[in-house]
Amino acid sequence: MKKFAGVARAALAAAALFGGTAVWAAQVVVGQVGPMSGLEASQGRAYAAGMQLYFDSVNKAGGVGGNTFKLVRRDDGGRPEDTVSITKAMIAEEKPTVLAGYFGSKNIADLVASGILAQEKIALVGYRTAEIRPETPYLYNVRAGLKDEIDKLTQHLATIGITKLALFYEDGPGAPALLTAADEAAKKAKASIAVKAPYPAGTARVTPAVDAVIKAAPQAVIMVSTGAAAAGFIEQYKAGGGTAQLFTHSGADIEQMAKRLSEEQMQGVAITQVTPSPYKVNTRLTKEFNELVTKAGNLDVPVSYSMIEGYIAAKVIAEAARRQGGKASREGMVAALDSIDNFDMGGYAVGFKPNQRNGSKFVELSIISGAGKIRQ
């Protein structure tokens, strides 16, 4: 009887704390398997830092709908052969409610092919690839699709009279869809792709591609690659006398490239961005993000586009938890994500529809200045 009374008192205390309704705290475990080391480590770690930044702020405020958040990270070194096995082990050991922050075209393709997402009924929210992925259940992105980025680039080039293009791309499982989209975008812009130059997936071996592009002498080169491969291409292309304008998609880590390349090599390179700039405080989202960065003090990684993308992914996960109205579950997370049609974060909105799991259409173009800094 005394034991029962003690439980009752605890329940009443909880009810008083949450305004008269007993709310039992639950923990949403968010699992990330990504490149914490290797070629894309700076992006993987920055994405994790952005998620942790938001989860810390939410937890300090008491959570969302009685849920607090715990981020669990595992390092696959960017190696596709490790992504699936590490994910399986993490699911068994940590029991995550949702996955987030995965990287790599083949990594994602192998994860989907393994059937583990459907088997475990677990959503993956937020990922980066250099391919156009088919619509896949349980796979949700918080950014615009690669096709949107290519359309933006070709439309921009058409407006300035550039019609002879080259495509530098990762030769992964999604390459055929990418090539089809690039041809369609070029046709709309009344342009032609003079050469399509691939490099092996998961590497930065770019020399044959550089040689092919230099020989074709295009007016502009569109790069759909990792940051490491893009940096290697720019370095060798300019050293080889290449003079075309260089445009890269958002998956290339501009901060990583700026560390490797000289200001002269970087000058004039343009990159599509699929989130608002983390360096400007001109929307409610970027104001909130920068205020939390300031409060956090010394972060493990510098502020970057990858960090704010991770922050956005965390906000979407928290919103999905809130919509469940109680303890979040894997199946509840999927249903809640499907119900998000226009989640406005203040200058950036995410929404999902049937057969449309790229959550945004936001694309803008940034250019690297003579000082090696990003400007819109």
Rank of each mutant, 00 (worst) to 15 (best):
M1L: 07
K2S: 13
V7I: 07
R9G: 03
L12E: 07
A13Q: 09
A14W: 05
A14Q: 05
L17H: 13
G19A: 09
A25Y: 11
A25Q: 15
V29W: 15
Q32Y: 13
Q32D: 10
G34T: 08
L39S: 10
E40A: 14
R45M: 13
A49I: 08
N67W: 02
T68Q: 06
R73W: 02
G77D: 00
G78W: 00
D82H: 14
P96N: 07
T97L: 08
Y102N: 01
G104Q: 03
K106Q: 10
D110T: 02
A113E: 10
S114C: 07
A123P: 02
Y127K: 01
Y127L: 01
P137K: 05
N141S: 06
R143Q: 03
Q155P: 07
T159Q: 14
T159C: 12
T159P: 15
I162S: 09
A166I: 10
F168T: 08
Y169R: 11
D171T: 03
P173W: 08
L178H: 03
L179V: 04
A182M: 15
A182C: 14
A182P: 04
D183N: 11
K188M: 14
S192P: 03
I193P: 08
Y199V: 10
R205N: 09
V206R: 13
T207Y: 09
D211W: 06
V213Y: 02
A216S: 10
E235T: 09
G241A: 11
L246G: 11
M257G: 05
R260H: 11
L261T: 11
Q267K: 14
A270S: 15
T275K: 04
P276K: 12
N282S: 13
E288R: 13
N290E: 14
T294P: 15
A296Q: 12
G297Y: 07
D300T: 07
V303I: 10
M307G: 03
I312D: 00
A313F: 01
A313I: 01
K315D: 00
R323E: 00
R330I: 00
E331S: 08
V334T: 06
N342F: 08
F343C: 06
D344L: 02
G347R: 11
G351Y: 03
N355Y: 03
G359T: 05
F362V: 07
S366T: 11
